Amino acid sequence: MPAPVRPGGRRGWDPLVRLTHWTIALAILVNGALLRDGTVAHVWIGYAALSALILRLLWGLIAPGPAALAEMPLAPSRALAHLRDLVAWRWHDSPGHTPLGAWMAVAIWSLLAVTAVTGLVLEADPFPDDDTHHAWSDYRYDHDDDEEDEDDDAHETGGAGAEVAEDLHEAAATGLLILAALHVAGVGLESRLSGVNLAKGMIFNRRERTKR
């Protein structure tokens, strides 16, 4: 059985960590599942997610306590031990990221960076203000005939690069949705094992005991 947790709970994450976490989470959900690529809202939400990521990483360089990047338990041996504990239905308290949680954060941040950078590469208008700008997601389907009339060398260089960037963007965006689902499942599992509402600590700065 998991070790008991004090009824009053313990402190969760600081306000900046919570702000950047939910900004990134909402951006992944909205841009990945609800909005069409290339629209104004999609572009600006992508900027918001990238800004939140940069802010979180900068904060991690100077933040005290569990928010510090240096405090993330990224040793592979610790991640394997954590996985064995979960398989054995054991849980150990952690003031910040668990080993698997730390690797999940790094994976999400990395894919978010790839998604944002490839989106910037593909966007002809970096600061669009209406949906009359070119939606790059239509590139393959709307310009097949026109491409035949363009200069072959210029087309092959630009077209191939755009296609690679688009493929990377879509793959990274899909990966983000998969990792987000796994992250939610992991938080639910560890909340069940520990008897601590871990999600609440990312909202109200308290990790309180769940009702059994």
Rank of each mutant, 00 (worst) to 15 (best):
F204I: 12
S194Y: 04
S194I: 04
F204D: 15
S191C: 04
A185R: 05
A180C: 10
V196L: 10
A173K: 06
S194K: 01
A199T: 07
N205S: 09
N197P: 00
A180K: 09
A180M: 15
L193W: 06
S191W: 08
L176C: 11
L182V: 05
I178Y: 13
G175T: 12
V196D: 00
L176H: 01
L176F: 02
F204C: 13
L193C: 06
F204A: 14
N197Y: 11
G175L: 06
L198T: 02
R192Y: 07
I178S: 10
G175E: 06
A180V: 13
H183Q: 14
G188I: 03
V184W: 08
I178P: 07
A173N: 14
L193E: 00
A181W: 04
L198Q: 11
S191L: 08
G188F: 09
E190P: 13
A199L: 15
N197W: 03
L179D: 09
G201S: 06
S194P: 03
A180Q: 12
A173F: 04
A199D: 08
L193G: 09
L198R: 10
A180H: 04
K200M: 13
G186D: 14
H183G: 14
I203S: 09
H183A: 13
N197C: 12
N205A: 14
I178E: 08
A173Q: 02
M202A: 13
H183P: 13
V184T: 13
N205C: 05
R192G: 13
L176P: 02
L177G: 14
R192M: 12
T174N: 14
A173E: 07
T174M: 15
E190L: 11
L198N: 00
L176R: 03
L176W: 03
T174L: 07
I203N: 11
A199E: 06
V187E: 08
V187P: 01
G201I: 06
S191F: 00
I178H: 09
F204Q: 07
E190N: 11
L177V: 12
L182D: 01
L177T: 09
H183S: 14
A185S: 05
V196Y: 01
A173H: 05
I203D: 03
L179M: 11
K200G: 15
A180E: 14
L193K: 00
A185V: 11
A199Q: 00
L177P: 01
V187A: 14
L193A: 12
G201T: 06
L198M: 07
M202P: 05
V187K: 01
L177Q: 07
V196E: 10
L198I: 02
L189A: 08
I203L: 11
M202V: 02
L176N: 14
L179E: 04
L189G: 08
A173D: 00
A181F: 12
S191R: 00
L182T: 10
I178L: 14
A173S: 15
G175D: 06
L198Y: 04
A181P: 05
N205F: 02
L189C: 13
V196Q: 03
G175A: 09
A173W: 00
F204R: 08
A185L: 15
M202N: 04
G188N: 08
L182Y: 06
